[in-house]
């Protein structure tokens, strides 16, 4: 490679490194704001503020869903990494709300660190399969 071209190449690499570094620093500084929601761990440890509007997300703990017979209020637990948070939500659950699936809610933490949500979105995971396969998995699971 001739010296002029080598110099231009170095200049471009330097430019990329500089911009990359600046972006990395900016993203680290904004880390908390880029996270779309707080995990149950952050909600119980005190990282998530109490009484302010926040988003929280996790996996719906199977068997924890309880419906209030009088209105649309449901309570359930969500977890990630073993930490559980109780969620209270009044409204219509999204179509893809399932126990064992992810959800992201918007609402406030009360003093007992229960998450009072007024909006609930279903978070889909990256797994795709036909219904028959899921049936087969369930059967194998029940048989064992």
């Amino acid at each position: 490679m001739n010296p002029v071209r080598r110099q231009r190449l170095l200049l471009i690499l330097l430019l990329l490194a500089g911009v990359g570094l600046a972006t990395t620093l900016a993203l680290f500084a904004l880390k908390e704001n880029i996270n779309h929601y707080f995990s149950p761990n952050q909600m119980t440890s005190g990282e998530a503020p109490i009484g302010q509007r926040i988003r929280g997300g996790g996996i719906v703990v199977p068997g924890s869903l309880e419906r209030n017979p009088d209105d649309l209020t449901v309570t359930f637990k969500m977890e990630t990494g073993g930490t559980e948070v109780e969620v209270v939500y009044t409204g219509i659950l999204p179509d893809l709300f399932r126990e064992g699936q992810g959800i992201v809610g918007t609402g406030k933490l009360d003093k007992n660190r229960r998450f009072i949500a007024d909006e609930l979105l279903a978070k889909h995971d990256e797994n795709y399969m036909p219904p028959e396969v899921q049936d087969a998995i369930d059967k194998a699971h029940n048989a064992s």
């Binding site: 880390k31 880029i34 996270n35 779309h36 929601y37 707080f38 995990s39 997300g57 992201v104 979105l121 978070k123 889909h124 995971d125 990256e126 797994n127 795709y128 399969m129 036909p130 396969v133």
Partner: peptide, 21 residues
């Protein structure tokens, strides 16, 4: 980051999380 968008289904290093059909 925590995102609403799910993780990658097609990965270079692992088996894809999708039925072959």
């Amino acid at each position: 980051w925590n995102t609403l968008h799910q993780g990658a289904t097609l990965k270079l290093t692992e088996k894809p999380a999708m039925a072959p059909e």
